[in-house]
């Protein structure tokens, strides 16, 4: 079941998007198998540059597995994946280290549990990966880090350790850490699920800003408001497959699939 599309309202397309088959990310028939269980089952997905896609669905549907497949934290069992110029074919065995690195360099990821490095200050969390991976000098990395911390409104927390920051602050630092690596695709794995709603709102605010800066984003979320108002596309995932995908208004108000209707009526309470 392959749902390909081109986003009609993506302004980034006209601007600087590479003229490669229209899409920036193209996953073809990705499958991730854990033993007998297919967490991701034959999923195809295209994302245009600058597009924001929300992936919704019941827990255990394979949403997290899917986006973890996109930066190869989980190596898919079969299928093909292209991000920008990096292509990996999983049908031909384990991908090489170089191809994994190429692909990952395009992506940044934000986790549900933040995963900041607890033994480093916020600033060092953001500078160390830049220095080790992009070989930036300390001064260069720090300048960039402060830029990103400012972007998430936390330049005052640069010297603080993660344990001295609130959950919402930690998540914003994690976003800054990912952004400082110049990703062209941001993956969000339930970024607000570990936070109370009020704090979650400040994360969503940062993500809104990113979206309006034309960042390409894939967001696994239970925040229906965000899915509806920020994303260009909503994909509904059930039992490892994307059963329906379309503009948020259509999915939210007039879903075609009976299981989408069931899921939405459960989460939206109607």
């Amino acid at each position: 079941m392959s749902i390909s599309h081109l986003s009609p309202n993506s302004s980034a397309l006209e601007e600087g998007a590479p003229a490669m088959e229209g899409s920036f990310v193209s996953a073809v028939q990705l499958t991730k198998q854990f033993g007998e269980h297919k967490a991701v089952n034959d999923v195809s997905l295209d994302v245009a540059k600058g597009e924001v896609i929300s992936i919704i669905g019941p827990s255990g549907a394979g949403k997290s597995s899917l986006i973890r497949c996109l930066n190869l934290l989980e190596v898919p069992s079969s299928g093909r994946l292209r991000i920008g110029d990096a292509t990996v074919d999983f049908d031909t065995g384990t991908p090489s280290k170089a191809s994994v690195r190429n692909l990952r360099n395009y992506t940044g990821m934000v986790f549900q549990s933040f995963n900041l490095f607890p033994h480093f200050t916020a600033l060092k969390n953001v500078t160390l990966p830049q220095m080790r991976v992009h070989r930036r000098s300390k001064a260069e990395a720090e300048e960039r880090a402060m830029q990103e911390l400012k972007r998430v409104g936390l330049e005052s927390k640069a010297g603080a350790y993660p344990a001295q920051c609130s959950g919402g602050q930690q998540q914003r630092i994690a976003i800054a850490r990912a952004l400082a690596m110049d990703p062209q695709l941001m993956l969000f794995d339930e970024p607000t699920s570990g936070l109370d709603p009020e704090i979650g709102a400040e994360i969503l605010q940062v993500m809104r800003k990113l979206a309006s800066d034309n960042m390409t984003m894939l967001v696994v979320t239970h925040e229906m408001e965000f899915a509806r108002h920020v994303s260009n596309q909503v994909a509904v995932m059930v039992e490892g497959s994307i059963i329906e995908q379309g503009p948020p208004e259509q999915i939210m108000t007039a879903p075609n699939n009976i299981r989408t209707q069931k899921f939405l009526s459960a989460v939206l309470g109607r």
Partner: peptide, 27 residues
């Protein structure tokens, strides 16, 4: 050391050696 630590390092493209040296071993 929580698995999320090396996953975060991986997601930032850090090498295996760097991940051990800077993230896993100190913790």
């Amino acid at each position: 050391v929580p698995k999320g630590q090396s996953e975060a390092a991986n997601s930032l493209s850090m090498s295996v050696v760097d991940t051990y040296r800077f993230i896993v071993i100190p913790q």
